[in-house]
Nucleic acid binder design. Structure first.
Length: 716
RNA sequence: GCGCGGUUAGCUCAGUUGGUAGAGCGCGUCAUUGACGUUGACGAUGUCGGGGGUUCGAAUCCCUCACCGCGCACCA
């Protein structure tokens, strides 16, 4: 027996060494598996593309969960003989990464991005991104992820840029991408537009003011933003509202807080006659809903607020911030005796997810993807392209009930604003010269200027399953591994990302990006709180791995964690699985000691054969659990078998047998123990790859790496 | 407002097609030079949120109510 078993299992010493062996073997790469005859070249493919972590710093426990779950599937399938590929990568995460670096620069040097300039800021971001990348790769390896590093991708590298430009051009040519002047979500703090999904609603109390524009104006209106009223073009009332019927169609001009304003009274069914005075002051340029009302009634759209959330009108409000302007307008209303009522109301305010800035709806010339337009030659819209595969079962969501959330979101989807006024990211592939415009690749010759804006980061992540496989080239990888088998990610990015992948893949490849969406929940602390910097309850996967081992962290994240449900993690739980690793270690020590030199193929006695059959049944069960995405159950079953059945019962009763005079029983039991241990270690490998691999070296020294061993009972 | 999920042992959660409730942690008692104290044995605690229904039988299916959490939308 190996001397190493005389000491308790030491994950810290073992894990990095084992990972290095795996990497050096080259077997994370399926081509190598095939070349060495470990995988059949005609075997069914099984592929997962790693959701690329943002290069914004370090990984957290949510990433550790993602890696653990995906590695379980990948290792199990690899052992079952599938042609298995798991591709790593990172995401440039445009807006997220740029804000982190901007904050840093502002804190350390007191400089804004405009002080640095585009080129210098980009240089800083790239340095930061590359450092983050290296940290992240190190962390991913620590967790034991069996990723094929030879195929690593980055959302902003050359191949991915080619894919982005190609999709952009095809969508543009299909008339799905258009440039339009529309009201967008402007983040004055980040100085960029953002999509609807990047908005976070915060509940606050606000004052609702009820007043008339002028003494001789017949209708009172209510608003929480009186400063915007200098940009009003209409007052809208419900068509059936008897109170205001006589005014519909009439136009009124007056001076409102030094600003000349003309409003028309219009009838619009969207207006709720029961709210406030039943009359709505319409500010087309600074409210989404009002913009739509303006569409219906052909109203002018005077802009009165700029990109810095400052007033652009003449008079006393000129150049004032909106908050200050609001107070001035209220003061003016009081002076003029126009204010009728003030009340406190609860209000959801829109803020930008990344910067916390309060969103200012502004009309701007931006790029959009039309989700409702029929795709030429396809007879359906992008929206339908997103709905159909989930409806007809080509894509399954685990857990299933999330399909309702998915449908609900898509049905309410509006055109996707894809241009951003930040500098880090894929620059919009459009070049201008005078009236001319070229889309796709840079045109020859001088005098062309590229669009200043960059693309929403989700545009490039939407291509991830096929851009990582080399598209638009028709590569072997693309043919073999696409569609991918599983997309495993957090339910919180179902819309941001998952839906966009279905959209992009449906459009570009007329295919689904994956067959199954496995959604994991949030990892919370022992008290059920979200992990956050401000609470100081973050767990660092590296720290956990160094104290308990990555195997223990993986088990703790997987057992009892059902898809779609948040999970709590505590050091106690992780410690429990560290003990389990040691338990396996000691089981091995006992079996090795007792079975030295015995015939492992000896015939089993009847009772021993029954025990062997019992494990076969359990493994069949656990295999089915893995196939049906219940890895939390598979892990739990194997854990209990190893500890409660194998160690506590079978090993204990073996002691009696080994002390007895029954030689046949002894021989049989020894062979049995060897075979039970071998299969327990094998089937636990996807869950606890390090300790099982280390044990394998001692129990099957001639059989190569456990990661390439055959899964008992099931092959592809 | 619309939608989704949850409510099971002190705590955290499993419970796959309906068949008289499970795990981990914690707690209690006992054991011990044993493969392992990172141990073992034994033990206690449950009107499975309330009510109703279907069924021979419901934690599980249906209806309803309550509370908690989340998502989307949003009233100006």
């Amino acid at each position: 027996m190996d001397d190493k078993f005389l000491k308790p299992y030491d994950p810290l010493e073992t894990e990095p060494r084992i990972y290095q062996e795996w990497e050096e073997s080259g077997y994370f790469n399926p081509d190598r598996m095939i070349a060495d005859g470990l995988t059949d070249k005609d075997a069914e493919a099984f592929s997962i593309i790693l959701p690329p972590p943002n290069v914004t710093g370090r990984l957290h426990m949510g990433h550790a969960l993602m890696l653990a779950v995906e590695d379980v599937f990948v290792r199990a399938k690899r052992m079952q003989g599938y042609r298995t590929l798991w591709i790593p990568g990172t995401d440039h995460a445009a807006i997220a990464t740029q804000s982190v670096v901007e904050k840093e620069v502002s804190k350390k040097e007191g400089k804004s991005r405009y002080d640095l300039g585009r080129e210098e800021l980009l240089r800083r971001i790239e340095t930061f991104a590359s450092e983050s990348h290296d940290t992240i790769v190190g962390q991913v390896k620590t967790m034991g992820a069996s990723l094929d590093w030879s195929r690593e991708a980055f959302t902003l590298d050359e191949t991915r840029t080619r894919a982005v430009r190609e999709v952009f051009k095809r969508m543009y040519d299909a008339g799905l991408i258009y440039r339009g002047n529309r009201i967008v979500n402007w983040d004055p703090k980040g100085q960029t537009t953002i999509s609807d999904d990047e908005i976070v609603h915060e509940e606050r109390t606000a004052t609702l003011y009820t007043f008339k524009y002028a003494k001789d104006f017949p209708i009172a209106i209510s608003t929480t933003r009186p400063e915007t009223k200098v940009g009003d073009a209409a007052v809208a009332v419900h068509p059936d509202d008897a109170r205001y019927k006589e005014y519909v169609g009439k136009e009124f001009s007056f001076t409102f807080c030094d600003v000349p304003v003309t409003v028309r009274v219009v009838a619009d069914a969207e207006v709720d006659p029961a709210f406030g005075t039943g009359a709505l002051g319409v500010t087309p340029a600074h409210s989404q809903i009002d913009w739509e009302i303006a569409d219906r009634h052909d109203l002018p759209r005077p802009q009165v607020i700029n990109e810095y959330a400052k007033m652009t009108v003449e008079g006393r409000l000129s150049g004032k911030k909106t908050a200050e302007a609001r107070e001035m307008v209220v003061a003016w209303l009081r002076e003029e005796g126009l204010l009728e009522k003030e009340e406190q109301v609860a209000q959801n305010i829109s803020t930008a997810e990344r910067t916390g800035g309060i969103i200012e709806p502004l009309p701007k010339l931006q790029w959009f993807i039309d989700v409702n337009k029929e795709i030429p030659g396809r007879g359906k819209s992008l929206k339908q392209l997103m709905l159909e595969p989930v409806r007809d079962g080509r894509i399954t969501i685990v857990p299933e009930h999330f399909d309702k959330t998915y449908f609900h979101w898509i049905e309410n989807l509006r055109d996707w604003c894809i241009s951003r006024q930040i500098w880090y990211g894929h620059r919009i592939p459009v070049w201008y010269q005078g009236e001319e415009m070229v889309v796709g690749e840079a045109p020859e010759g001088d005098g062309w200027t590229q669009d200043e804006d960059t693309l929403d980061t989700w545009f490039s992540s939407g291509l991830w399953t096929f851009s990582t496989l080399g598209w638009p080239e028709q590569t072997e990888d693309l043919k073999t591994y696409h569609p991918t088998a599983i997309l495993e990610t957090g339910y919180d990015i179902l819309f941001f990302w998952v839906a966009r992948m279905i959209l992009m893949t449906g459009f570009a490849l007329d295919e689904v990006p994956f067959r199954t969406i496995y959604l994991h929940g949030l990892v919370r602390d022992a008290q059920g709180r979200k992990m956050s910097k401000s609470l100081g309850n973050n767990m660092d996967p590296l720290d956990i791995a160094s104290r308990f081992g990555a195997d223990a962290a993986r088990m703790a994240l997987i057992v009892g964690n059902t898809p779609g449900t948040d999970t709590r993690i505590s050091e106690d739980k992780i410690k429990g699985y560290k003990n389990f690793a040691n338990k396996l270690w000691n089981i091995t020590r006992y079996v090795l000691t007792e079975t030295e030199g015995v015939d492992e193929n000896a015939a089993l006695t009847e009772p021993d054969a029954a025990i062997r059959a019992e494990l076969d049944a359990l493994i069949a069960d656990a295999t089915k659990d893995i196939d049906e995405y219940r890895i939390y159950m598979a892990a739990d079953k194997l854990y209990h078998y190893a500890w409660d059945r194998l160690a506590s019962e079978l090993l204990e009763e073996s002691k009696t047998i080994f002390q007895s005079e029954d030689e046949a029983a002894k021989v049989s039991r020894k062979a049995l123990l060897i075979s039970l241990l071998r299969d327990v270690i094998t089937t636990l490998h996807p869950f606890m790859p390090f300790v099982t691999e280390e044990i394998w070296k001692s129990i099957r020294p001639a059989d190569g790496l456990l990661m390439t061993a055959k899964w008992p009972g099931k092959t592809v």
